[in-house]
Design a binder for these strands. Structure first.
Ligand SMILES: [Mn+2]
Ligand SMILES: [Mn+2]
Ligand SMILES: [Zn+2]
Ligand SMILES: [Zn+2]
Lengths: 154, 154
DNA sequence: ACTCATATAGGAATATCTCCTAAATATTCG
DNA sequence: CGAATATTTAGGAGATATTCCTATATGAGT
């Protein structure tokens, strides 16, 4: 797996040691792509393969991985810090479509904001290097249900 | 002040009682527009005018005001929940430009994402009603300093 | 003013996350 | 390989933001 090699390479590069704890935490985030696991969930999953790991190590490692730009922190305002793997474009994140009805979280494309960022540079003289974008609204499924209910009511 | 009348009206409408605690909390958020105060800061400011208020009441009230869509919660991932007043367009929020160098937070315009939301509706069949957008990068001031340093080094 | 549902104060409880320290371990070098 | 050493870890204590609990207080309708 080339992701793991990259992981090892970046560790070396920054002078950090390769430990099985770090590898397991990273692997759990990689294996659960799209899940947006929180720290505790990651801790539980790592424990299945590496029961002796401590919770502080998981927190430390997640912070380290984030600093190394191998994972991203996401915040869905539910009291947990959540994480996802960094893919392809390391600089620009994908956005999330959060349904206010069913709570589903869908991932969007990551290159929608290019023109807006140019506009921000021109207008605000602010050089954007990354963004965190959440769209709230109604997903396809819920929209259809709401439409149907509307028809029934009239 | 028409904001306070609106506040009173929405309270009545939803069957909530008008209390001086609620008024003071709301006023503090209104008076500190652009500041993004956290719950504790709001608590301290309210105490200056209303010393007997309890911290739980402030938290309860902030949640209530958010539910009433009179204030918005913002998250700058510093461990505090922060709040800002809702202005003009109740449905669409402004975005924030966060400088990675000096930590400054500048507010952006709130109508940049219209075309993107149309695209999301077409592509993802997701009806956007609101968004939370943070841009990370470098502010005008820091960009200039960085440019100058670059020149010095070469 | 009386009634009563709602709201509050204050402190206890919860929960996420961080800090501390002795022991363990990865890496380097001979 | 084995020793030296700086880093990392486990586990528990600690920190701190937020919520819960309950007796008391209060707003609003009559
Ligand atoms: Mn995601
Ligand atoms: Mn703002
Ligand atoms: Zn939905
Ligand atoms: Zn700056």
């Amino acid at each position: 797996m080339s992701v793991l090699k990259e992981f090892n390479r970046v560790l070396k590069e920054k002078g950090y040691k390769f430990t099985s704890q770090r590898q397991h935490v990273f692997e759990v985030v990689v294996e659960n792509d799209g899940e947006h696991l929180n720290s505790q969930e990651i801790y539980e999953l790592v424990r299945k393969k590496y029961p002796e790991i401590g919770v502080a190590t998981v927190y430390r490692t997640l912070a380290l991985l984030e600093e190394m730009k191998l994972i991203y922190g996401v915040d869905f305002e539910d009291g947990f810090r959540r994480y996802e793997i960094v893919k392809d474009d390391k600089e620009h994140r994908h956005h999330h479509l959060i349904c206010l009805e069913c709570g589903s979280i869908k991932e969007g494309e990551n290159d929608l904001l290019g023109t807006i960022e140019e506009e921000i540079l021109r207008k605000d003289k602010f050089k954007v290097t990354n963004h965190k974008v959440k769209f709230y609204g109604y997903c396809d499924k819920c929209l259809k249900i709401m439409e149907k209910n509307n028809k029934t009511h009239t």
